[in-house]
Structures are given as structure tokens and as C-alpha cells.
């Protein structure tokens, strides 16, 4: 009997959840707005739902990891987010952790 598709999907989602924060903070070192970030992440192979990403940007801003500014130069105002110094620091911490986890998991999975 194979694994239920929805079970697999659920675990994949769990595994990817934390990586969205790292991807967004890393990408926004170049300022960007919600939809552009969504597209660039998708192009980069990071699949994230819009209903997850937009609230996440707000949360990261509230935590001081992103700063935001409304760009009203164009006819359509857009909120541009940019990674703050605190955000940069978190990118470094999360990246280091990501590599550490990768090594650990490689050791574990290669033993099997």
C-alpha cells in the first residue's frame, strides 16, 4: 500500500514552510513588492501560496526583519519591502542552520 497523496503533500508543505522565510528575506535584499516576489520565488523554484506569502511579509515587517515603503511614483501604488539589518542577520543564521541540517540529514540518509 502506497502513501496517501494528501499525507505526502502535508509533509512536503511542513518541510518547506520554514524555507519560505529564508527565501523571502534573501530575495528582498533587493527591494520588491508582493506579486513580483511571488513570481521571482516561483521562477527560482520556491513554491509558495499567495495567501501564505502576503501575510508573511506583514509579519516579518512587524518583527523588524523587513522594512516597507509605499512607492507612489507609478500610477498604481505598491508597497516595497526590503530586508533590514536584523533581517540580514537572520538570513545568515538560517542559512548556516540550513547547511548544518543538510549535512546532518545527508549522514542519516546515507547510512540507510
Amino acid at each position: 500500500m502506497g502513501i496517501d497523496d494528501s499525507v505526502t503533500a502535508g509533509h512536503l508543505q511542513e518541510l518547506r514552510r520554514g524555507t519560505v522565510v529564508l527565501a523571502a528575506l534573501a530575495a528582498l535584499r533587493t527591494p520588491g513588492y508582493g506579486y513580483a516576489l511571488l513570481e521571482s520565488l516561483t521562477t527560482a523554484g520556491i513554491h509558495v501560496d499567495a495567501n501564505t506569502l502576503y501575510p508573511l511579509l506583514r509579519r516579518l515587517e512587524k518583527q523588524g526583519l523587513l522594512t516597507s515603503e509605499w512607492n507612489t511614483d507609478e500610477p498604481r501604488p505598491r508597497k516595497f519591502y526590503r530586508t533590514s539589518p536584523d533581517g540580514e542577520q537572520l538570513v545568515a543564521t538560517l542559512t548556516a542552520e540550513w547547511h548544518r541540517l543538510d549535512d546532518s540529514l545527508r549522514n542519516l540518509t546515507e547510512e540507510i
Partner: peptide, 14 residues
């Protein structure tokens, strides 16, 4: 209000 309008407009354009 502004954030939602931005998101809706961008998504519609997409």
C-alpha cells in the same frame, strides 16, 4: 485597503 488593492490588481494583471 491599499495592500489588498495592490495585490488584487497585480493578481488580475497576472
Amino acid at each position: 485597503d491599499r495592500e489588498l488593492r495592490e495585490r488584487i490588481a497585480d493578481t488580475v494583471d497576472g
